[in-house]
Amino acid sequence: MSTDSQQTGDDIDGEQASETETTEDELRARIEELEATVAELQELEDAMAAAGDDGQKKMTIIATKGTLDMAYPPLILATTAAAFDWEVVVFHTFWGLDILHEENSRNLKLSSVGNPNMPVPNIVGALPGMDRMTTRMMNKRIADNDTATIEELVDLSLDLGVELQACQMTIELMDYDEADFYEGVTTGVGAATALQHMSESDVQLMI
């Protein structure tokens, strides 16, 4: 019994010695492998630095509303971000398309119902002609305060290099023609384009 165990012990020692050699070789190989990986990563990092991550911020806004009040925030933020030299994309979908529609953008309306801060009760606001009246009042205020019009802000956005995109699916859904939009508006884009820009952006907003 005891002899057997002694023999077994010798065998184990022999095996351990050869195992140590193998382990050393393996470790050397592994170190070389890791060194190669580190070198590759260093190259990748240099390439990424060279690829122009110049610190320029990016913003993507999804504009979904087309009432007179809700058309302003995306355009005000877009033009201001462009003044900061940010790269800006505004993706317009559903009623947001009216902001880019040359004719409709000049006639955006303000609803006289649904906003409890309006000076008239909803039941009065729902009467025919009330939306027209509240819209006229708002347009007068815009003119009196020298606030830029939607058309001016769209032109300014395009001048500043903001990319104004019109969602192709909703252009067709709303039966609009691509020629109805301001010159410089990007058409033929969809959700994947919007998502791709959003994933690369520092600021993403849905309005």
Binding site: I76, A82, A83, D146, L156
Partner: peptide
Amino acid sequence: TGVSCPIPVVKTKQ
């Protein structure tokens, strides 16, 4: 003079 947000900033940049 006379114009309001965001025009002063945008015109300054331009």
